[in-house]
Amino acid sequence: MPFRWNPELTMQDITPEEYFLERRRFIKQAALVGAGAVLGLNPLTALGGESQDDTATPYEKATHYNNFYELGTGKDEPAANADKLLISPWSVIIDGAVTRPGKVSLEELLKPHAIEERVYRLRCVETWSMVIPWQGFPLRDLLRRFDPQGNAKYVAFETLLDPQHLPGQTRKILDWPYREGLRMDEAMHPLTIIATGMYGRSLPNQNGAPLRLVVPWKYGFKSIKSIIRITLTEQQPVTSWNQMAPEEYGFYANVNPLVPHPRWDQESERRIGEFRRRPTLIFNGYGDHVAGLYAHMDLSRNF
């Protein structure tokens, strides 16, 4: 059955007035809670429930609060160091279990694909979240061009390795280059995209220019940035965070409020720009589309 993407969230969600109102409400609530803390009261009970809408995160915030350790481990460092990521010329190697492996320039790689918009929730394992309007195309359309072979069970991705320019790679914070991977059915899922832009502009370097993966039902670290290599493999590939702390970061890393992390409970999240935490949804709210992929798996063990 062909899959039709139904844009639950659209760009119309963003208006400057809304940012402004959000901000005023935020300050008011913070002041109230501050006063309440002093008096030993809980003013939140009077403020009503959490908001449940999916307003797009302001561009400024989505581009200045990033985890991209190659450009620094502080949240604002990737934006400050953005120019240290050299993105032209750029090419991508596609190899492994494909009939037509090769190295393609960025232009060649993008040429046949029609760019579409996908407004997705992005949930970080650190319990914050955003809503981002991406521009890109399904990963499966790209993979099919190279003709995956029957023994291709996984897709492995690699970020640029350039310690001469990327300040984060001068120290062994992770085992560089950053690597991520998906099972073949996850990679071929229509929700999985390669993004080349956001908010109608080209992808900022700190958000993973010139092309990155976006898998909206998994924690953000799965959505690898600045990809230079895609390899189809038979074995489950080594992935960076899983390699560094396997008991904390699983290979699947599906957003799941029921599977706690040793450092953070995953039951709730702070939507960037909002004051209160909101409950985290299983599969980040994309369960209708993706739960079937894991029907026979124990999600608390394969987290």
Binding site: R23, F26, I27, A30, E60, K61, A62, H64, Y65, K75, D76, W128, R270, I272, G273, F275
Partner: peptide, 13 residues
């Protein structure tokens, strides 16, 4: 900084 919105995208953190 809190008043002037200088605390970045996640002011609480």
């Amino acid at each position: 900084a809190a008043w002037q919105d200088l605390l970045g995208a996640n002011p609480i953190e």
